[in-house]
Write a protein that binds this DNA or RNA. Structure first.
Lengths: 235, 235
DNA sequence: CTTGACAGTGAACATTTGTTCTGTTATTAT
DNA sequence: ATAATAACAGAACAAATGTTCACTGTCAAG
């Protein structure tokens, strides 16, 4: 059977290019027949056929039964583009800024913002596409820390990495959490497992041994790790 | 006789405001009837009447007999807005989508998109805030891979991590690169150092030993690592 | 008061434009 | 080959939309 290839055919691209050019030139979108004339498609139904596909693929939005009711969302290169302030706002919603509240160092308690934390310092925030974050999380529970030193390498986290944390006081099994070990005066990142009366802290690096804690009271869960980012910026 | 006042009447302003709002909201201009509905003008002919005036005054351009053929040139404040998307574009530029072209596995050559790569599959792209990327990089040189298996743990890269790569064929000292080692049939991520005639490949984990390559010809640089992302999505 | 430009109404009309339908031609998997 | 699906054509249709026109009301100058 004939199968539709994923991606964009030359005609798809041609239509997208024309939509962009026409809108730019005239200030309003073209009609279906105009699209056909400029892309060597002789039938309006075929144009509609392609427009429907482009809509499904998320390149355009259409309003049915509205003349020229075509809204270009992103071009063939995949770059988002829109005339709408509204769209810009929407796009900005895809981007969230997470406060970078300090450093996480093995030998010091790590900073945790207070629960009523709503302060925003534009200089010390990192921008993250919302799609990278667990969708359910409410954003005001998130904060970021920069890792200092090599002490977290058993958690596969390097000096300079950024960890995005979520405020929790109770960890669930299998989650990677930041923990303050009261008896060692140490902050550490480990996978958390509660096993009967004791707590097992498993390093991310599978070749390393877990820490078994028999007294759960000395384990202070500071937060749950949601995302780790490492920027290699030597270029 | 009654004279027409110079300048804009409240209705003129209302129409201009609506034109701007509608275009930005929907991505295409309104019809005459829509304008009437939203500006308390009951007759289409009156709307046309005002539109003609606005055209003469240079606020809009119209194409006759074309549905929604209205192009807003300047708003009531007299500010030119040439398809004014500047603000929107600026906002949208902060977010880039990088194609996720495949997996990186130690035992297999890693996929590298061709240089004329412009294909975009909406399903397999990851959104990244531009601020996380080296600012100078041109975006079409970037692609992303998902790490498969535990073989990159000496590069501090875990199973499931996403690495964002930049296409290069020559590495500079100190850069983390993806390398195909021809003699081992293996892909690896290492810090690259050219030292006289030989190449030193340094693992990111400082406790691990470097690989010294005496014959640089067996080192194929596949790309430079720009960013590593680890999502912990167990919530 | 009359007049004429301005403002507004509503309906009829002519096009433009999107949609649907029936059918034909390629392409590809089995 | 055969069948299923994608790609395409063209006409007919329905709806959206711009235009025109005859008509009413307002207001200020003559």
């Amino acid at each position: 059977m004939a199968r539709r290839k994923s991606g964009l055919s030359p005609r798809h691209k041609k239509i997208l290019a024309f939509l962009e050019e026409y809108q730019q030139d005239k200030g309003y979108p073209p009609s279906i027949r105009e699209i056909g004339d400029h892309t060597q498609i002789s039938s309006t139904s075929v144009v509609k056929y392609y427009l429907s596909q482009l809509e499904e693929m998320g390149y355009i939005a259409r309003q049915s039964n509205v003349s020229r009711g075509i809204n270009l969302i992103k071009n063939a290169g995949g770059n988002l583009l829109q005339n709408a302030r509204n769209a810009a706002a929407q796009a900005l919603d895809q981007l969230v800024t997470i406060p970078l509240v300090g450093n996480i160092v093995a030998g010091e308690p790590m900073p945790v913002p207070p629960s009523d934390f709503s302060y925003y310092d534009p200089d010390s925030g990192i921008d993250i596409a919302r799609s990278l974050l667990p969708s359910a999380d409410s954003l005001d529970q998130l904060y970021a820390l920069r890792v200092h030193g090599d002490s977290m390498i058993d958690a596969m986290v390097n000096d300079g990495d950024i960890v995005v944390m979520k405020k929790v006081d109770q960890a669930r099994n299998g989650e990677m959490v930041a923990i303050w070990l009261a008896d060692r005066d140490e902050t550490t990142l480990k996978y958390f497992y509660q096993e009967n009366e004791r707590v097992r802290l498993q390093p991310a690096n599978p070749s390393m041994q877990p820490i078994i804690i028999d007294d759960p009271s000395i384990v202070e869960v500071q937060g749950k790790v949601v995302l780790v980012i490492r920027q290699l910026e030597n270029a």
